[in-house]
């Protein structure tokens, strides 16, 4: 069992690297049980979208909510 600290770290890190099967499984299980980390995972995607829109000087952001447990690298 991983805790919220470990889960959020993985949710951040999966934007830079592919998680191992073991990590994915542990994360999936944790996120299934934990609403706060589920929200955190969605926010990671939103944060990336926001940052890119900001960098592009756009006034708005696409509403893209990605599932927190199935977004490997987001390129």
């Amino acid at each position: 069992m991983i805790d919220c600290k470990q889960a959020t770290r993985l949710l951040s890190e999966q934007q830079e690297r592919n998680l191992s099967r073991r990590e994915k499984l542990a994360l999936k299980f944790h996120v299934f049980m934990c609403k706060a980390c589920r929200n955190f995972g969605q926010q990671m995607g939103t944060l990336r979208d926001l940052a890119r829109s900001y960098a592009k000087g756009e006034e708005k952001v696409q509403d893209r909510q990605q599932p927190s447990d199935s977004n490997p690298q987001d390129k």
């Binding site: 959020t8 770290r9 951040s12 890190e13 934007q15 830079e16 690297r17 990671m44 944060l47």
Partner: peptide
């Protein structure tokens, strides 16, 4: 990774 994690 840890730096990005903290920033996020």
């Amino acid at each position: 990774h840890v730096t990005l994690y903290r920033a996020r």
